[in-house]
Simulated assay, not measured.
Amino acid sequence: MKQSKANSSRFMVWFCAVGAFTLLLFLFPSCKKKPTVEPVSPPVEEETGVSVDLTKVPYAKLSDYRFFEGTMKDQNPVDGVLPYEPASALFTDYAHKKRFIWLPAGTKANYTSDHEVLDFPVGTALIKTFYYDDVQPDGGTRIIETRIMIRKSSGWIFANYVWNTQQTEAYLDMNGSYTNISWLQNGQTKSAAYRIPSETECHTCHKINDQPIPIGVKPQNLNVDYAYEDGTQNQLQKLIAVGYLTNNLPGNIVSTVNYMDQTKTIDQRFRSYVDINCAHCHSEGKHCDYRPMRLAFSETSDPINLGLCVEPEEFINSSLAYIIKPSDKNRSMMYYRLGSVVPSERMPLLGRSIVHEEGLQLLEDWINWKQTCN
């Protein structure tokens, strides 16, 4: 009888233990062993937006800045990279140019004067791509280089990027080089040994009092309309509208004109031409400030600054008696030097290897228009 009770007690203990374990499995299913599952990595998001890290620029590749979207050779700017075009363009062996401005968020440029470069904030990037259309023998487009100026707290720096033959990327190269190119210009084949400038050559033109500075981004040159994707607008007003320029412009900006626009006077056109092509050297504090000419648009209302009836300080030959002789191109030093391709004689010294035929014709027309020294 006692043995039976003991067996019964052991049975009850076993039954309760099994029941309790079963209840735990039911209440806490996480205690069950789960099948092994490989961890899933979060999706990798592509970086977007412009990158101008002042502690790291200049980058090794143009694509590192992320100025453009889609295929980079198409030069489609991302939001915030604003295209622009000065009223008159610098001649560089007939190369076409695409120009862009980018400013860091929350910053603005400021107006200083009509003829001075806008006062851009630290972090600004100015981008200019040089390219040719109708390149021979295939007739396509070839981008040669993209030049960038970046404003650091210590001042502007240069970053020059040379495009590869596949037109997929451009790489930092400040050493300077030549590349041969042929293209169709108004139905005629032209050729040039195009010069990609070195850092020293960049500094020769882009300086004032030996400090690097941009050239073309002046109110006098930007006070013209541009056909943006969202409509045509005055470029200075566009800069204000997108928050890139303080709205403190004067009511009447004395502006240059497109020197190819024959609806403008010959005087306006020629003075605009020498402003964009020559004044970056022939101005106070610039590379050629020891010569008598002062060729900025704001200074060429004085004919002496243009060299009119002024004897040159250096003579190539005795027939060139004046920098500009009214009505006589053959006695005008400027006409001779704009028509020369000899490196020691040509003007400008840098930036061209062939004659700018339209510019030379404009100078001839202006010389013939000027009948006196006044």
Rank of each mutant, 00 (worst) to 15 (best):
Y273Q: 06
Y335C: 02
Q237L: 04
H203D: 07
Y111W: 07
L90N: 02
L350S: 08
K218M: 15
P303D: 12
K73S: 14
I157S: 02
A20E: 00
N248I: 01
T168Y: 09
K34D: 09
R151G: 02
L24G: 04
E45L: 14
V162Q: 07
D133P: 05
K56C: 13
Q167V: 05
P250K: 12
E46R: 08
G187T: 11
G285L: 06
D74W: 12
V274H: 01
T179M: 00
R271G: 02
S182W: 00
L245M: 10
L320C: 11
L27N: 10
P42D: 14
P312M: 08
Q220Y: 15
Q75K: 12
M149Q: 14
M12P: 00
D289R: 09
T204M: 15
Y59D: 08
E45N: 09
Q3T: 10
L249G: 03
T141V: 12
G187Q: 05
S318N: 15
A95R: 01
R195I: 00
K370A: 06
N368R: 13
Y259L: 04
H115C: 07
Q235V: 09
A60D: 14
K73W: 13
R66V: 14
E313C: 09
V310I: 15
Y178P: 02
T92S: 15
I157G: 03
A125M: 06
W14N: 11
